[in-house]
Amino acid sequence: MNATKLELEDERRKVVSLEFQLASEQNKLEDAKNSYTVANERFEEAMTNNEDLRAQWVKKKKESDLKITRLEKELEDDRAKAMEEKARLEKELEEEKTKASSERTVYPDLYVAAMEQFKGSADFQMAIDAAVASNLAREGAGGAGPSERSLGAGVKMK
């Protein structure tokens, strides 16, 4: 009976040892489950945050794309306006050049015609005589008078 008792005692120790091992393994399993739960919650939170961030990014990108499109359109409109204004100004410049060229050819004829008209005028002749006399007086006094050109050197006096 002693041998049986010893066997039973030995088996009981093995069972107690196995129960401790089982309890230890169950604690490890419970810790692993808790770690898994926490990790899974963090993963789901990260995925939710990621989705939120992605949605924000998509919204910002759409807004930026719309703004870029609007600015490109404005730039295109401004370029078109600038080209129209440039064309208008070039046309005006060309018209002014043509007008000035035309006036240059007409004015000498008008000048000659006006001078011819005034040559016969007594007032004009008196003004020329006074200017010539004044010039001669200054030159005689040692001063420098107006040059012949400024007195109408190209005009013949009667």
Score class of each variant (00 low, 15 high):
80 A>R: 15
66 L>G: 13
46 A>W: 00
97 K>E: 14
125 Q>M: 00
75 L>D: 05
36 Y>S: 07
40 N>R: 06
22 L>K: 03
101 S>A: 15
39 A>W: 04
50 N>I: 06
122 A>R: 04
148 E>R: 10
35 S>F: 00
19 E>P: 00
135 N>Y: 00
28 K>A: 09
114 A>K: 15
57 W>V: 13
31 D>S: 06
86 K>G: 14
94 E>T: 11
80 A>N: 15
133 A>G: 00
41 E>A: 08
138 R>Y: 00
80 A>I: 14
79 R>I: 15
53 L>F: 14
156 K>E: 08
1 M>P: 02
47 M>N: 11
65 D>A: 12
154 G>E: 12
127 A>I: 04
111 Y>E: 07
4 T>Q: 07
43 F>S: 07
31 D>A: 10
62 K>N: 09
73 K>N: 13
14 K>L: 05
38 V>Y: 01
54 R>D: 10
37 T>N: 06
34 N>G: 01
43 F>M: 04
48 T>A: 14
87 A>E: 15
83 M>Q: 13
139 E>V: 03
34 N>R: 06
50 N>S: 10
112 V>A: 12
5 K>R: 09
64 S>T: 14
13 R>W: 01
50 N>A: 07
146 P>C: 05
73 K>E: 08
111 Y>H: 05
79 R>S: 07
57 W>R: 08
46 A>S: 07
60 K>S: 14
23 A>Y: 04
65 D>S: 11
111 Y>G: 00
78 D>L: 15
103 E>V: 07
78 D>G: 12
15 V>H: 11
82 A>Y: 05
59 K>R: 07
40 N>T: 09
139 E>I: 03
19 E>S: 00
48 T>I: 14
